[in-house]
Design a protein around this nucleic acid. Structure first.
Length: 359
DNA sequence: AATACGGGGTG
DNA sequence: CACCCAGTATT
């Protein structure tokens, strides 16, 4: 399983010391990052790591501040209604993270007496915590040796060891290399130093090898920009859909709560058709679904909202309907006062549709 | 092993 | 526009 050569072992051991020195000198202040010598707040470490999954530091900062102000500790988060958490998560994406955040907080209150488990294996069993996050929390919050491997660290390892392993297929090879480089002490600082390095110096394009603290040991520096090797991406198909902007004369907008599973699960949104590849939106089926409304003739807003999800492009048109007043609704629909719309937490695709309807 | 799952920033 | 990002859960 672990067939490291003596050369690999020797190289691995050269990485942590200069990285920790560099971290001590260049450590960035981040809202969730504890000062040197101060104990980490596991709740902050957990919250930040969940938010940072596939999401940049710049994007996360304001969300982290908002969440820790609204819910200062794990019991506050566990007791909050899920709808409130989704409302505040809106715009950050990957909404299963928010649902799992809530579930995880409740699990920790019920099964762990409100205290985070400190081992990688226990953390791994919690909702929303996978191999990366379990290792990150164990090392950063509890100073346990754990092999932390994220996209940054894969890139740094591929370059330092000049590995031609291809992502995502050979992810295990980068774990093996990262293990060779992981020290036994200050593991949390070490993991964060590598991630900072990947974000600022060992970048995907135009890496700044000239100022890299481990450049003297780096085997791949001459071909850094070509590493790591990655499988070609699939092309995204294009889907089309129609959303409905249904308002009343007394100033309410019709919204629906989306199903728990699937895209934008449990988030609020404009009612509309399914989003389908290769055919026009199925308006007949939509109108049958909206039979509870007194009037169904819509007027098409000019243009389309364009939005790209992880695995498809969307062209969304908007049909406008004006009703004289509100009416009774099925349980997954609700009226929102237009006064509250601007600060209401809608997924970005629906924010775009709203701005189209309001033009 | 492959696919579903957001959105913003960058070159 | 394509690529990237402090990945996880499901199939």
């Amino acid at each position: 399983m672990d067939h490291a050569t003596k050369t690999e072992i020797a190289l691995g051991q050269k990485i942590a010391p200069p990285m920790l020195d560099w971290y001590d000198q260049h450590r960035r202040h981040l809202p969730w990052r504890h000062d040197p010598g101060i104990k980490a707040n596991p709740y902050y470490v957990w919250m930040s790591e969940i938010m940072l999954q596939q999401t940049t530091v710049a994007t996360v900062k304001s969300y982290f501040e908002k969440f820790t102000n609204l819910w200062p500790d794990i019991s506050d988060m566990a007791n909050a209604p899920l709808e409130d958490i989704l409302q505040e998560w809106a715009g950050l994406g990957y909404y299963a993270r928010a649902r799992n955040l809530h579930k995880c907080a409740q699990t920790i209150m019920q099964d762990f007496n409100g205290q985070f488990p400190e081992t990688e294996a226990e953390l791994l069993m919690l909702p929303g915590i996978g191999p990366y996050t379990a290792a990150a929390i164990a090392s950063i919050a509890f100073n346990q040796r754990a092999v932390v491997v994220d996209g940054n660290i894969e890139r740094v390892m591929s370059r330092v060891f000049k590995s031609y392993a291809e992502l995502p297929k050979e992810r295990a090879e980068f774990y093996r290399l990262a293990n060779l480089a992981t020290p036994d002490s200050r593991v949390g600082d070490y993991a964060q130093s590598l991630m900072d390095l990947g974000a600022t110096i060992c970048t995907p394009k135009s890496p700044k090898c000239a100022i890299c603290p481990i450049q003297p040991h780096c085997l791949g520096k001459l071909e850094a920009e070509g590493l790591p090797r990655k499988a070609p991406k699939k092309i995204k198909p294009t889907r089309k859909g129609l959303s409905l902007w249904i308002t009343t004369l007394d100033g309410y907008l019709l919204l629906e709560r989306r199903p728990e599973k699937g895209l934008l699960g449990k988030m609020p949104g404009l009612p509309g058709t399914d989003w389908i590849e290769g055919q026009e939106p199925d308006i007949d089926t939509l109108m049958q679904k909206m039979q509870f409304l007194p009037k169904l003739e819509h007027q098409l807003a000019e243009g389309e909202a364009k939005h790209t999800f992880t695995h498809f492009h969307l062209f969304l048109s908007v049909g406008k309907i004006t009703l004289s007043n509100t009416c009774d609704l099925p349980h997954n629909y609700f009226w929102l006062s237009l006064d509250q719309l601007d600060e209401f937490g809608l997924p970005t695709v629906f924010k775009k549709a709203v701005s189209l309807a309001q033009r």
